[in-house]
Design a protein around this nucleic acid. Structure first.
Lengths: 239, 239
DNA sequence: TTTATTTTCCTCAATATTTCACCAAATGGA
DNA sequence: TCCATTTGGTGAAATATTGAGGAAAATAAA
């Protein structure tokens, strides 16, 4: 019911325009001036649909689209000022659900949004957002709606950075995450900056989840990876 | 059912023409000679639809349109003597729902008005009174029809802002609500403004519901969330 | 108008969080 | 083995966020 939609567009007018039209339909809208802002927020607070402008300061809509597609299959609608087939194809290939060329009719976009949700409902995929809102790894659970994390059922009190970092590691628990990627996604450092903030946060996080079966293991010279103690016994308690 | 429509146009003939056509459809019509008059009235007495002439003495229709859009999503139809694409685009971008160029057919305008209302009805939008008129969380009840709140059965006397804030938190009791969302939805601040009015209202509200099982807990660096003292151990939201 | 109520602003204090500096320990390569 | 580099630990400094009290401003009521 309360579908949440994120919009990234550097043009305030467009953002507010879409916002007012979509809010009138009962959706909850958040606007972001850049795709990076949206992406960062999406990691900790997934939404039900995304509207992305292609031309934006910072990294463009196609880049953000691919980044989001790595971690979610949330419906994405692209907006562009240009009207070339190449763009259209690229957007669709990268995984966008639809494509609007500016200037566009807000009414039509609203209609599209509604039809996307209707399609999802129809395919009775048991509430798309529900599956996204809870993350589980070993004995750790994260409820992204309430922004809370629990370890063996009891509340883990995490700070904002710790929460975001753990969330990101859990989304990507199938791979090792490079340190620069964490600095990019969580701290927004796009260039290589000499900083150990990520290590600091990992350090504190490790302390807080020390009772867990999950651990944040170091990938030397690269980054970190979530691992599960109980699945490690191949070379420990083997005998 | 009795939809109220405001019309701003400096031309008496147009106003009366539209008035008679729309009244014949059962709508209640108020005419204003300038957009400023309409805006002033709208602030205290919102209506269900607005028809705005672009060319008017005082501030023009586009200006009034943006002003209204800051505070409301009410459908707006623009009228203009000019017939340029630029106008059309600007009107749509600023958030008008449709656009008529003088001279226009009153019949078509009536049709448009009806279709706008039909669309709103169809989208079963979460109009304030639509779904649940009564909200309950722990020992707090809110009756949205009478705009009253009770705690363990006895009347809670809330000020307008407190009432709105509590209502919003109760509607969204399944999730943490960011501060910016409150500022947007309740105070209408679209951009990020350095203000602590939300905290102030939360402060006063907390004092008033201090005897309740419900509490407004802060989500550090993010916002607030309604929680229930009596079920602190496991708080898995349904969705 | 005056008065009462409500809202916002302001400042300070109390916390919570993040970052940094320094050094010890661990790692991988020659 | 040594050496350069990376990582982890401790603790303290620098930042940020929130809460409380009360004053000022705005709003509504009388």
């Amino acid at each position: 019911m309360d579908k949440i939609i994120y919009i990234a567009d550097d043009d305030d007018n467009i953002r507010n325009l879409l916002k007012s039209f979509l809010e009138r339909e009962g959706y909850i809208i958040y606007g972001f001036p850049t795709g990076d802002d949206l992406l960062k927020r999406f990691i900790t607070n997934p939404c039900d649909l995304i509207i992305l402008d292609v031309m934006m300061p910072g990294r463009d809509g196609f880049f953000i689209l691919t980044e989001i597609r790595k971690i979610s299959n949330v419906p994405i609608i692209m907006l562009t000022a240009r009207d070339s087939d190449a763009d259209y194809i690229e957007g669709l290939n990268l995984g966008s659900d639809d494509y609007f060329t500016k200037p566009f009719s807000p009414i039509k976009l609203v209609t599209k949004v509604k039809s996307i949700f209707a399609r999802l409902e129809a395919s009775h995929s048991i509430s798309v957002d529900a599956s996204d809102s809870e993350l589980v790894f070993a004995d750790i659970k994260i409820n992204r709606k309430t922004k809370s994390a629990t370890l063996k059922g009891s509340e883990l009190s995490l700070t904002p950075n710790e929460y975001t970092l753990l969330t990101y590691l859990m989304i990507n628990s199938d791979r090792a995450v490079p340190r620069v990627e964490l600095l990019d996604k969580i701290w927004g450092y796009e260039t290589e900056i000499e900083t150990r903030v990520a290590d600091d946060t990992v350090k504190r996080l490790r302390k807080k989840i020390s009772d867990s079966d999950a651990r944040i293991s170091t990938v030397w010279g690269y980054g970190f990876r979530l691992t599960d103690k109980s699945e490690q016994d191949s070379d420990e308690g083997g005998e």
